[in-house]
Design a binder for these strands. Sequence first.
RNA 1: GCGCCCGUGGUGAAAUGGAUAUCAUAACUGACUUCGGAUCAGUUGGUGGGGGUUCGAUUCCCUCCGGGCGCACCA
Length: 628
Amino acid sequence: MVLNQARKDILAILNKAGVAATPADLVFPPDPQMGDLSLPLFALAKERKIAPGALAQELARTLKPAGLVERLEAAGPYLNFRLKRGEVAKMMLTLPSIPSRQGRGSKTKSPSPSGRGQGRGNQRIMMEMVSPNNNKPLHLGHLRNAFLGESVARLLESQGAKIIRTCLFNDRGLAIAKAMLAYKLWGPPNFPSTKDKVKRVNQSLPEKGDHYVVQWYVLFEQRAKSKEQSDLQKQAEELVRLWEAGDKETLALWKKMAGWALDGINETLKRIEIKFNTIYYESELWKQGKKVVEQGLKKGIFKKDESGAVLVEFDSPSPQPSPIKGEGVIGNPPPLVGGVRGGGLPPKVLLRSDGTAIYATSDLALTPEKFRKYKLSHSIWCVGQEQDLYLKQLFAIFKLLNYKWSDSCEHLTYGHVALPEGRMKTREGTVVEADNLLDELHELARKETQKRHKGLGRENLHARAETIAQAAVRYHLLRVDPKSGIQFDPQQSLAFTGDTGPYLLYTYARIASILRKAETRNLKLETRKSKSPITNFQFPISQNEWTLILLLARFPEIITQATKDRDPSHLAKYLYKLAQQFSDFYENSPILKSAEPIRSFRLALISAIQKTLKHGLHLLTIETVEEM
RNA sequence: GCGCCCGUGGUGAAAUGGAUAUCAUAACUGACUUCGGAUCAGUUGGUGGGGGUUCGAUUCCCUCCGGGCGCACCA
């Protein structure tokens, strides 16, 4: 934490002159030429009743540099500090090492300066994400969910938390019933044959199971629109009742179709390498959920309306989001958004008037189970913004039920992914399905890779193209603030140049290439500290190099900020800037061809950049390639 | 109607209330006998309108205009 040290030194200098400042008062100047850290003097000048410019002049004259601070300068109303480049570089680069040779998918965490520590080590946090519906394939929105959830999980882990990843399959209810009804009414009579086991059943389908099931769902929606079929909705509702009543025929059909969808979805999850420690199915939770509803009914917390539906009303003003106890890096999630302010929340139905369960019913059973079984200190729901109100209601219900963990629930919300022509709708076929998008990107990446490496074997080619393709989507979805909606423009989203995942991978691969060459030419870095040229800076460090070193020094605080804000886009922007800065340096400064000790210094520098890129990309769920 | 989120170059995005609003892309112009051209350098172009708070506003407040979402016995 070199920067913390620098800030401390600056504050100490200021303190001597009776200037009380906090680390947060120190800002980075807009142009690195101006200085390394800066203190705006407006407030202080007002207090002392002099012009800020004069105050800056005076302080610059009277204060003496110390510690890591080399110089102080007045620049208008700002007091700028320059650090001792050699000292800082030494601290940042004392771990020179020749290229990490881990290939793709290596689990090795780079010993980046991020430090884990800081956070309270004993946090046990559950991250619920993806949560597919068993009537359709995963689409672009699920991808955003999965990568955001996974990235935030990794960020939290980097701060010392233990993350339990989970997924709730919405495998029962009205949606799947609609698909079942369509299949029942209009589907092929004996297809696939009943002797097929559910697990193997995909092989007998004309296509991937989830893609097959959704067609029946869409067919239902289309026909339900027409007037002649106006009772279709009621029939679907009846099917839900039959399912809950345990009707054998209905259960068999459900098992078959939900199974097809499940197989297909799992295949996609495997492809995007999203894994869970435990998995829940709504079909196994609704009964327990009904019990919770009954208990609430007995206690008078829930009530039955005249139609027989069970609902909860929130008379009291909606609970204000309270900061999580034991605040720090991990606690203090951003305040909940959405819903209703001031007055009460609108009532929420928990059980239909025909007694069947809905989505909320299962959440009522699942959440206490999560906290009990996994001894959670905190639980996060990674769910889209359109459910802001629902989650507010859910958390308010937990409060009414007086669970002691009711303040430890957090909604990780994110904006819609829309197409240029508007919202994605499964019903209308205007969805970007995850499988198709990944295939398309894979094909583009394969072509590009093949152009450059004619002799590459098929398996290598495939693996590389897949990593590059996934880097492209992952980066594209994580580079913007989670809260803002994304308009998915295929043209721009499929690009591999500019501010993209492949650009970062390319930068990484270039550094890897240089370090490989250094190794084969035996230009090993002298790692013994006493002899290492980089422990003794007798040569000037250029502005380019210095900017890179300062950027590297900021990495830890970028991570803590991204974790606190639940916003991986901070990290994405940082990594892009680092890569850009490296490219600038690379164009202007020879590395292998420069003389010692500059060469060793530059090798150590790019090695540190490489590690930071790898670690940072890993936190963004992106894997690197050594060549591309 | 009520509530939440959001309006930044043609397009997509940055900017804890701080210095000359930063990038990408598109368009145009350049750079490979050199450590990888999926790269780099350059040119053109911008804070929805109006008030307010402040030494200072893209940022905070009010208002108008425009967009997205929610207010389901869907998830």
